[in-house]
């Protein structure tokens, strides 16, 4: 496991000159993925920002084998790759499903659920920018309450799906949340996942300056605020045991969490929120934390 950034490899497998927007956190997460797992991985990538960022034929900026695939089919396709490698006796290659929130929590949830139920030996990573970013920011099942998107011009009326817990219901051996603002946490989770047999699910919050309407320089800061306000919680569920990870483990006391308002008001997508809305969101966050704390103390989901 990595203790500090300086221990990480200087090798890059997301090559310079890719097409991600300036300040894209997904691009940071991709670099971290490769820092964690190296290049002995095969990626299955459905329609999402990552199917565009690497650029067009005959070039790509991803220096590992990638199977681009249909929007809803990541879990199934990865199952096929895993089966083929098993047949061929290839044991030292990790299969990674890498999908956005739309491709995970909406259109791809069936194939993901099927793959998890079958215990497919792969790591599935959902990078969640809380909307369909590639098509220009439409609402997804992962868009939070109140957020502007192009299909919720006055703000979303419903709450975000709790996908890590949907995955927990599959009783897979490893589930974790992460955010590119906490690179060592993410890398260690990936390395841990690699050593576990079966389906591993990691859900990353992926701040998106283009869609969330904040300055490109604030990507890491926004991710940090998401965690510090408790809107995004870093945890892992290993064989059913729930555990907070730093720094979320230091935020169990409500007083230590910054008000959600600090996170919300930095982003243009929450411009339409009223004071009542903000209060409602704060209440929901506090309730979620009560639930998580109960899970952490009972240790079982």
């Amino acid at each position: 496991m990595a203790g500090s950034i300086k221990e990480l490899s200087k090798e890059e497998y997301l090559l310079k000159g890719h097409g991600a927007c300036a300040g894209c956190s997904l691009a940071i997460s991709l670099r971290l993925l490769f820092k964690a797992l190296g290049n002995k991985i095969v990626m299955v990538v459905p329609a999402c920002c990552t199917s565009v960022i690497p650029g067009p034929y005959p070039y790509t900026s991803l220096a590992v084998p990638v199977q681009n695939m249909l929007f809803e089919a990541t879990g199934a396709t990865a199952s096929g790759v895993v089966a083929a490698f098993h047949r061929r006796g290839i044991k030292d290659v990790t299969v990674v499903g890498w999908a956005g929130d739309g491709g995970t929590v909406d259109i791809g949830i069936q194939a993901l659920s099927g793959a998890a139920e079958r215990g497919t030996d792969f790591i599935y990573i959902c990078y969640d920018n809380e909307a369909y970013g590639n098509t220009g920011m439409q609402r997804s099942g992962a868009t939070p309450y109140g957020a502007w998107t192009t299909t919720t011009p006055t703000g979303k009326k419903e709450r975000k799906k709790d996908t890590p817990f949907i995955m927990a219901a599959h009783r897979i051996p490893y589930i974790a949340t992460a955010c590119s603002s906490y690179p060592i946490d993410f890398i260690n989770k990936l390395r841990k996942a690699k050593e576990i047999e079966g389906t591993k699910y990691i859900h990353i919050l992926a701040p998106c300056p283009t869609g969330w309407r904040y300055d490109t320089s604030k990507t890491v800061e926004i991710g940090r605020l998401a965690v510090q306000t408790g809107m995004w919680v870093l945890f892992e569920i290993e064989n059913g045991k729930f555990k907070f990870n730093p720094p979320s483990n230091r935020l169990i006391d409500k007083a230590k969490r910054r008000p959600v308002k600090e996170y919300l008001t930095l982003q243009g997508r929450f411009r339409n929120l009223t004071e009542d809305d903000i209060e409602r969101i704060q209440k929901w966050v506090d309730e979620d934390w009560e639930r998580y704390c109960k899970l952490a103390s009972n240790q079982y989901v």
Binding site: V44, Q67, M69, L70, E72, A73, G75, A76, T77, A78, S79, G80, V81, V82, A83, A84, F85, H86, R87, R88, Q110, A111, S113, G114, E117, R118
Partner: peptide, 24 residues
């Protein structure tokens, strides 16, 4: 053979694509 008991026909074909791309 490996037998993947998928959860839909869309996934059946997708798994075949993944497997064939995996070289079998």
């Amino acid at each position: 053979a490996e037998y993947i008991r998928v959860e839909s026909e869309h996934s059946a074909m997708s798994a075949c694509i993944g497997a064939a791309a995996g070289g079998v």
